[in-house]
């Protein structure tokens, strides 16, 4: 880097070192690429650990896994799928329900790498902030995606769902689908910040709802140390959630839209944020306090 002083999160890198200021970013990329590699080893190298794609798959030839949104769409068309698909969706639902729903978005979903890249470019080239869009639109998208199978009798969203499209492009050579990914990248880069993942994607919306009860959350534990450097705001894909945790009544980010990416933990020189168990007594006290004050 030629201008170390203008480097993003320079304070965190100086204070914590490169690894600690990037650890969750690097771990997430490793996780996303590991899942992709497990799927790709079959068609590419003939080693079948994980068959199928993110819509439905078979782990080690025995454990079925399935995307809850795809499975819900199939059910809502009126088709009763085989038990394998239902079991797969239940297993995935339980997994993310426990680990934090949008962990899927930040630790598994391949589209996240594309949209994070667009966000990085925006930051790197200081593109102007775009107007805040309503993040709740994604829940209307989710309702729409679940309504359309009931009206039309087929799984309409699967024509355009970019998550399996990217996987199909990489695993099955369906390269034309990449055009959707390019469109999402350009929209995130040029139209509005974090347009896809934080405003539109119904997959993320459903995983968010699944993770509502998850014990894994991020909390601004040492928020008194915050020096308002705004690095976490620059990097957070759901930055509207940060202010309440930093300045509001509850330190815990309990909202379902948090992707638990941990980038706020990385970039904070004051080490304000930590992964926390929401059922930890300390947060229950905070939660009660917040409720009482309302």
């Amino acid at each position: 880097m030629s201008h170390p002083s203008s480097r993003f999160a320079a304070a965190a890198i100086a204070r914590l070192g490169f690894w600690k200021a990037h650890r969750f970013l690097l771990l997430r990329r490793a996780s996303q690429l590991t899942v992709l590699t497990l799927f790709a080893m079959g068609p590419w190298a003939g080693i079948w650990l994980l068959q199928g794609n993110l819509s439905a798959s078979l782990l080690l030839d025995t454990v079925p896994l399935a995307d809850p949104l795809t499975t819900l769409q199939v059910l809502l068309t009126g088709h009763l799928p085989q038990f394998q698909l239902l079991l797969g969706a239940i297993l995935i639902g339980l997994f993310y329900g426990l680990l934090g729903g949008r962990v899927f978005c930040s630790w598994v979903c391949p589209v996240n790498m594309v949209t994070d890249f667009a966000a990085w470019l925006r930051r790197r080239f200081n593109l102007p902030r775009t107007p805040e869009l309503p993040g709740k639109f994604r829940y209307f998208m989710l309702a729409l995606v679940l309504l359309l199978p009931m009206l039309t009798g087929f799984t309409v969203w699967e024509w355009l769902n970019p998550v399996p499209i990217l996987y199909r492009a990489l695993l099955f050579g369906n390269v034309t689908g990449i055009s959707i990914i390019v469109a999402i990248f350009l929209a995130d880069l040029l139209l509005a910040e974090r347009l896809w993942c934080s405003h539109v994607c119904p997959t993320g919306a459903l995983y968010g709802l699944l993770g509502k009860l998850s014990p894994v959350k991020i909390a601004a534990v040492k928020r008194e140390a915050c020096n308002n450097c705004m690095d976490c705001f620059s990097v957070c894909p759901e930055r509207q959630l940060l202010k309440p945790a930093l300045k509001g009544q509850q330190r815990l980010i309990s909202d379902a839209d948090c992707t638990l990416c941990g980038r706020c933990i990385d970039v904070c020189a004051a080490e304000v944020f930590q992964y926390k168990n929401r059922f930890n007594k300390e947060f229950q006290r905070f939660a009660h306090k917040a409720e009482n004050e309302q």
Partner: peptide
């Protein structure tokens, strides 16, 4: 076909199971 489009999740497990590479997942166009 109509029921097929209700049921298929486009996971590609049939494609991967085909020993002769007969099956493919449809690209656009």
């Amino acid at each position: 076909e109509a029921e097929f489009l209700s049921a298929c999740v486009r996971c590609g497990l049939c494609v991967e199971a085909c020993p002769y590479d007969t099956l493919q997942l449809a690209r656009w166009f």
